[in-house]
Design a protein around this nucleic acid. Sequence first.
RNA 1: GCACCCAUAGCUCAACUGGAUAGAGCAUCGGUCUACGGAACCGAAGGUUAGAGGUUCGAAUCCUCUUGGGUGUACCA
Length: 651
Amino acid sequence: MQILSLIRDRFEKALTGLVVDPASHTQRITVARDSRHGDYQANIAMSLKAEMGLPPQQIAAEIVARLQIDDICLPPEIAGPGFINLKLRDDFLATQVTLSATDSRFGVEAIVPRRYVIDYSAPNVAKPMHVGHIRSTVIGDALVRILRFLGHRVVSDNHLGDWGTQFGMIIYGYKNFVNENGFAENPVAELSRLYRLVQQVIGYQDAYPKLAKAEAAVLDAQQLYQAANAKAASDPKAKAGAKQAAKSLRAAEELLESLQQKVSAIESEPALEAIAQNHQNLEQKVQFETAKLHAGDTTNLELWNKFLPISISEIDSVYRRLNINFDYTYGESFYHEMLEPLVSKLVVAGMAVESEGATCIFLPGFEAPMIVRKRDGAFLYATTDLATIEYRMQHFQPDVILYVVDHRQGEHFSKLFAAAKAIGYENVDLQHISFGTVLGSDGKPFKTRSGSVIGLEYLLDEAVDRAYQAVCDPQRLQKAGLNMPEEEKRHIANTVGLGAIKFADLSHNRTSDYEFNTEKMVQLEGNTSAYIQYMYARAQSIMKKSDSQISRESVAGYSVIFAESAERDLVLQLLQFEDALHQSVEAYYPSVLASYLYSVAKQFAVFFDQCPVLIASTEQLKRSRLAICFSTSEVLRLGLSLLGIGTVDRM
RNA sequence: GCACCCAUAGCUCAACUGGAUAGAGCAUCGGUCUACGGAACCGAAGGUUAGAGGUUCGAAUCCUCUUGGGUGUACCA
């Protein structure tokens, strides 16, 4: 039962014959922001002033007169400049909540399905996963779950980076620097070491020749800065120039510092320095290995086949912990054979042309073209992405393809989507579900103090450890009267810790950057999953203690009554579950569902505080409150599960 | 240089996409309860929504400019 759409339907009927396009106005009916204005509000009349040429209050009165809604609401009230305020009838709320509680989907109805392909997570194989991979993975997974629950047909696809330069790096690294014993003992760690080693040396070789120039640039910038400052002192108009100069100076200094870091990382270790000396132009050598792999070189292909499962098993272990599954994992390599024919086809059709030796698609509105084949004949990720669209259209016939990828690739996707349209894919809705950066507490991209990235597994471990300490603190458990075996404690810590990481991510508006702070997110108070999980556990505990056996089958016999306002407030929120789901996928913001669940949990805490259940004044009231506990549990458990977060019966 | 994004309470974030007195959580201060597990509940304080104009019944939200930050920018992904 979607209350909002029910109300909108009634308004649409009332507006029919009154205005030109009734449906377009009903979007302006929303949950009341302030409960003093009722439960829902319609902000329609004001915007109809121009169309109807009447004062908004009069329009509102007209609408209300035509509105048939008394089976759901109390008589509507008109307020302020023409708001129509609605308050739902108590008997309606009571009936609906019982009805929902008897349903395993809490009354959420399946809708006309659309076909979705959701492209998310997409880590680079052979590079260790880090905190940056959390967002795509967790947001994508939540969208898959919610859309599926609503009845859509969803294909989840992990577009693994399994064919890129990083393989050239570990192939070269393996051929030249492998520690055989280390590889035999722990291949994942050894590959990761090789990757870092090669990356460091390339970084060094790239940075070293630039050092002198960067030093000079800093000196120049300093001079310019001083000159500009001197000028600004006498001439206020030159102030902007001085600021600009300060900015340039800072940029030059930062560049120099990062170069120096790369250089000293190698020079501080003689072994690394020797490698750098003995393997000049490593970047080109690595590119050569990559090119050989792409060309089908037997040795490199064998190595690729050897390394791939190793890296994938590591990634899979992260997915297993996070309980994330994909329908398909078609990595870049999967599309490899399709690139050449695709580019040829585009060239023949005249859609791709040669420019400066590269094969390009020029797109109106973009300065630079989309390059689909490099001068040296190699293909790029743009090529793969186009081939991927083609493949998905042929095999999945989606109405929508969502790319859950960080915002820095915004321009790439605008180009890709324009190109896809240009080559004939006009009937698919392509959307870049972009998200912000994960920051450290210094407001900069999340890294260790020394600048290296932190492994994802480590962060998961940390969250679980902290959760264990907080939730399974012996004193706390004793005070709560909870006696549990070690195994259960670990299970709880796992559910709470991993939930905390997911929830911290999902509760933020995806387009904002957010600060990653394990300490805070597992602090287990405030806007965290632990708080919600805790409220769920408390509701479970009450039901367990009652002698009546409430269940989905029996709850129909527990009619709901409102003795306190806390009960009505909670029930109203529970019935907005379906609205929250629809709203969260409307523009693909899982954060809408996350904050809905938090406010339900908070509302339950109020109910819990003010409405004794087991010792309620009458048996009827006790049964009503049990039904409310049951319904709350259902919504919290279901809702969290749609975010990929679990619950436990006690914690 | 050009393009896109951002700036909201001391801190971390919301604000249903133009609605009524901008809300939560931390932190601070004060209060409640011999009720179902004190990770509880209630209250106070905290804001010229970076600044200046504009659009209209109405702006944190849309437009213009200014300031400060981030990101991307022809052969990496």
